[in-house]
């Protein structure tokens, strides 16, 4: 089932001359986990904002083409109505705090109150995301008195608690400790298995390779490729787009060891180990 349809999307910020998004088209199915990669300024955050309607509703500028989420055209819907279906976690968690709540607990409740959930339902959902993202210990703290990583966890938790059909995450693990980012990927992967559609921007290429069903490679506002991780990371022109393949792929490339399909190189730790293990003397 098609969940997100983007057709010939073009966008330019008011203060600039270059297109930030340049004629992008793609389709995402329900329950897919999509990784978006590309160098700095490629347009990743802008694309995220276009999926949730911040572009063009909040950022004005020149806009063309269509973004359709779950049958609704983004341009025709208000950000708030859309937000109940499509959640977004911002690149900088600091900008995601509403500033109108005094505790982490209440902050997470903010979206749930706007959805009109019952109190019981709210309590249940909040406790579960606090636990999932490991911030129960700071639940009564002021949202601004958190460490960077704790704030990022809170930002993710506050969106996941709303259980949107589609979740867009813009580098959600940039400030998390290694196990924390692994846990977030695992939790989001689990949600995607349960049917949530996931769009995640990340520079942590090893994790993207492991968790994504498909990867979208963005460069200067254009969609260069949209394919399986193995296909994307086996491209020999990757560096032209400012992207480096996972370290597992690089090692296998240096050793000229391909997957059994004889076409692609391993993109994940387990694939690399499988391909390499038999080739080494003990």
């Amino acid at each position: 089932m098609k969940k997100i349809v983007v057709e010939n999307l073009k966008y330019r910020y008011p203060s600039t001359e270059k297109l930030a998004l340049d004629d992008i088209s793609f389709t995402i199915n329900q329950g897919e986990f999509i990784g978006i990669i590309g160098q700095n300024s490629a347009g990743k955050s802008t694309l995220c904002q276009a999926l949730v309607g911040l572009v063009p509703h909040f950022y004005q500028g020149a806009y063309g083409g269509k973004v359709i989420v779950d049958g609704i055209e983004v341009k025709q819907s208000s950000i708030s109505e859309l937000s109940l279906k499509v959640g977004i976690v911002f690149q900088n968690p600091f900008t995601q705090v509403t500033g109108s709540k005094l505790t982490v607990y209440e902050e997470i409740a903010f979206g749930l109150e706007n959805m009109g959930l019952t109190r019981i339902e709210m309590l249940e959902r909040i406790d579960s995301v606090l636990d999932l993202f490991d911030i129960t210990a700071v639940k009564n703290r002021n949202p601004f008195d958190l460490s960077g990583g704790q704030m990022q966890r809170m930002a993710i938790a506050s969106i996941v608690a709303m259980k949107p059909d589609v979740i867009v995450l813009d580098e959600p693990t940039s400030q998390l400790d290694p196990q924390g980012s692994e846990e977030v990927f695992r939790a989001i992967g689990e949600l995607s298995n349960q049917g949530m559609t996931v769009v995640m921007v990340e520079h942590k290429i090893e994790k993207i390779a492991e968790y994504s069903d498909r990867v979208l490679l963005l460069h200067e506002g254009k969609c260069v490729d949209f394919a399986s991780p193995a296909d994307i990371f086996s491209r020999d022109d990757l560096h032209e787009y400012g992207v480096v393949a996972p370290v597992y792929t690089r090692v296998c490339q240096a050793l000229k060891q391909k997957n059994i399909d004889k076409k692609t190189y391993p993109a994940t730790l387990s694939e690399a180990v499988e391909v390499l293990r038999g080739k080494i003397h003990d």
Binding site: L54, S83, T95, V97, S100, Y105, A109, M115, G116, T118
Partner: peptide, 26 residues
């Protein structure tokens, strides 16, 4: 600048949605 960022933060959490609001606190 913060005020502008806050406005975005509110909107993406459904603040202006037309649904009937409920409250965490009794």
């Amino acid at each position: 600048i913060q005020t502008r960022e806050r406005a975005m933060a509110l909107e993406v959490r459904g603040f202006s949605s037309l649904r009937h609001k409920t409250f965490l606190n009794e």
